[in-house]
Amino acid sequence: MSRRGLKYWAIFKTQLINGFAYPGDLLARSLSIIIFLWVFLFLWRTTYRAVGQERIAGLSLRDTLWYLMLAETIVLSKPRLSSTIAEAVRDGSIAYLLNKPYNFLLYQLSVGLGDSILRLAFNALAGGLLVGLTVGPPPPLWGWPLTLVTVIAAWLIDFCIAATIGLTAFVTEDVAAFEWIYQKVTFILGGLLIPLDFFPAWLQAVAQALPFAYTVYGPARLFVEPDGGRFVTLLLTQGAWLAALGMLLALLYRKGVTWLTINGG
């Protein structure tokens, strides 16, 4: 690894260790996922019984619960990135950070990743334990590494969107509103609350055409039904979105920096 890469590795590691400082908080936080999954368990168990079919829209009860487990894990482990970046823009500290010998966005990326990984592990463990004990074993092991790759890609897409929202603080006061809208859109169109497969066809089409489905639904769906072809298609779609959103972010960042150097912090 190059010396520059090592720098971000160190930032990532520090943040990771930092997360261990409050184990009580970590445990209490993973209680959230237990609560949500517990309710979903009752909802879907009853629904499957009422419908009287083994599979609904191609998903079994076990599939649905493992799907929701991964979806919740991904969303609950996100770092609070937009507000952090918006804060840095608003109080002018971004101007100081520009002088530091690292790239501001890569720094945020390392910090966020270090923050997320620990929570991801705790949430997956807590959620997986609950779902495993109630509806049955997880999907085949060979699909896990494939899923992990797409989870990382999903995390990066989310990073680009969240950071872009954070950087809009250059032009707008109310970043929280955008952040909030993004969060809610993820709930439905991202497939957090309910798999897209259960949507009416037209709404599915809308969701598939937007990037949000690839931050939650994509990896969670692959997880419960791993398949080489599905993996490749998903990764390619994620890659395309990542390229587009990454470009947008880089552009906005460069604009912001220019604006800063002209107008001052």
Binding site: I56, F187, I188, L193, I194, F198, F199
Partner: peptide
């Protein structure tokens, strides 16, 4: 969510 749910 419930609108989608009960639609199905």
């Amino acid at each position: 969510f419930w609108v989608i749910f009960f639609d199905r």
